[in-house]
Computed example of a mutant assay.
Amino acid sequence: MSSLPSLTVGYVPGGTPAKWARNWAQRHPQVPLQLCAVAAADAADAVRAGTVDAALLRLPVDTSGLAVIPLYEETTVVVVPADHLLAAADEITAADLVGEPTLVPLDDVVDWADAPGAPVDHRPETTADAMELVAAGVGALIVPQSLARLHHRKDLTYRPITDAPPCPVALAVPEGPQSQLVEEFIGIVRGRKAGSSRGQAQPAPKRTAREKTLAKQAARAAAGKVARTPGRAHRGRR
């Protein structure tokens, strides 16, 4: 006996697939959508291994064997203690971080080769661990805005870095032909309206000018035959 169809979507920390999941539930209530949290470093592998059918992940990553659909770019921010000098401004620039002690966790996802600041020797294992060290005054932390919100706490705050590179977010699926369910989910992610996703009935292709001309000629010919038929019948009754 075959199992009921379902779709599993992975998402990295800070990812927000809830809206898509709600839209899916409205359009396909008979097909469960399971959301699966995955570490940023494991998201692409999870898709390749088939652990998830698709994954919301951050770029850059190794995308071999994957089809990647860019979605949006996150603002890069710096997290500091709430009473830090940088918290006095609404936004900062990279120059404001020159010489500032910074933390670079092992799961860092910000692709900024020349990031400002003075990295401390200790690299915390996770971003969550780094947040604890920021609160302790060890250093500042540069992250995508969604991670700053995810790990929000009253003694910390964050400020956008206006000249920092953004953090791209994408949807990754296995390379090659997609299942109907994956195509439907891609349609939701891309904002297609219900009934217009790939796999649904497509509108008839537009006719060429020649096809339109031939259709008109055929219509006129048919109309002429209809018009002549009653005439012949009338003459036959005389």
Rank of each mutant, 00 (worst) to 15 (best):
R198F: 10
R159Q: 02
D96Q: 06
D155H: 09
A148Y: 03
Q202R: 07
G139L: 08
D108E: 08
A67T: 06
A82C: 12
P29E: 04
C167L: 05
A204H: 05
R22A: 14
E175I: 04
A136I: 05
V104N: 09
P13G: 13
R210E: 15
E74S: 00
A94I: 05
A40E: 01
T213M: 14
G187L: 06
G195V: 14
V182I: 02
R232E: 09
Q26G: 11
R232A: 08
R235F: 13
E73V: 09
A25N: 12
K19E: 15
P177V: 04
Q217W: 13
M1L: 08
W112C: 03
G117V: 00
A215H: 13
R48Q: 00
H28D: 10
V109N: 02
V226F: 13
S2Q: 13
D163N: 14
I161T: 06
E132M: 05
Y11S: 02
A204K: 13
V226Y: 10
S2C: 11
V104G: 05
L35H: 04
D42N: 09
G50D: 11
P32V: 01
A82T: 04
L171G: 01
R220D: 09
A227M: 15
P166N: 09
H152P: 12
I188S: 00
G99I: 10
T126L: 02
A215K: 15
T229S: 15
P5Q: 06
G199E: 04
L181E: 10
V52L: 06
E125V: 05
A54F: 01
A118I: 10
G195K: 14
L181T: 08
V143L: 06
D96L: 12
L156N: 15
L106K: 14
A128W: 10
T16K: 00
I69D: 03
D83I: 04
L7C: 01
R190D: 15
L33Y: 05
E184K: 08
G187T: 10
E73L: 13
K206W: 11
